[in-house]
Simulated scan of single mutants.
Amino acid sequence: MTDASANFSDHASADSPETVREPRLWRDGGWTAQVMKNDSDDGWAVAMIKDGEREPALIGPWTMGRDKKNPKPLDTGAFNTLVKTASEVLRRHEQQLHALLHKRLNVSTAEQGEISVTLQIVPDEDDPYALLSAFDALGDQLAQIRVMPSFKLNQASAAAWIERDFARMD
């Protein structure tokens, strides 16, 4: 659409949280909405950024005004809808990241009953790693080892780890 992050960062900053309600720029409640020209066509776009963030959480098309040249001005209803939508986008992103970094499955064993095995990936820039952990039915930790962040946790790998009495997975 448009290079909104470059245009948008001029108006949104963490040190300017005051309320602004202009036809093309609204700032309120920790969010800023800016309507800007869409560089790829004759239309308009709106970008939503959360206070303190460098990149917009949401960029989307914006409605033309009645004159079919200028954008429709922002208003309370539109701003609230944009905040709700941008918040949902951020929440889905956080859920997806959490699911990517935290995996859990259960393995039934004859001797120990149900064992929950978790993989927690620690995405450290210098030394990424993961923690493979096992818990009994009461939630007590049975074992924990450090593994490569690329470790594939599945039923077979979890069962093999349990069968080897939680030995290192090299």
Rank of each mutant, 00 (worst) to 15 (best):
N106A: 07
S87H: 00
F79S: 00
R164C: 04
A14L: 14
P73A: 06
L101Q: 06
I115D: 05
A47N: 04
K72P: 04
M148Q: 11
T76N: 11
S87R: 03
K68T: 08
H93Y: 11
A45R: 10
A6R: 14
M169V: 10
K69N: 03
A156M: 02
A4H: 10
T81D: 15
T76D: 14
I145T: 08
D67L: 09
R92M: 09
T63A: 11
A57K: 12
F151K: 05
A134L: 08
A134K: 09
S108H: 04
S9V: 15
F8C: 13
K69P: 01
D28Q: 14
T63R: 13
Q144P: 06
H11D: 15
T19E: 07
K72C: 02
R104H: 04
A6L: 15
M1I: 12
L153S: 01
S157H: 03
K103W: 01
W44N: 02
T85Y: 01
T76S: 12
A57P: 14
M36R: 04
L97F: 05
P149E: 06
F151L: 05
R168D: 03
R54D: 09
V35L: 08
S40D: 13
A78Y: 01
E53Y: 15
G52V: 15
E111T: 12
L82G: 03
S116F: 04
N106H: 05
L74S: 02
P123M: 10
A14F: 10
L58I: 15
R66V: 07
F151N: 03
V20P: 06
G77D: 05
A33C: 07
N70H: 12
D41A: 09
T85C: 02
E22D: 15
Q155P: 01
N154A: 01
L153F: 00
F166K: 11
A12R: 07
A160G: 03
D28T: 03
A33M: 06
H102K: 10
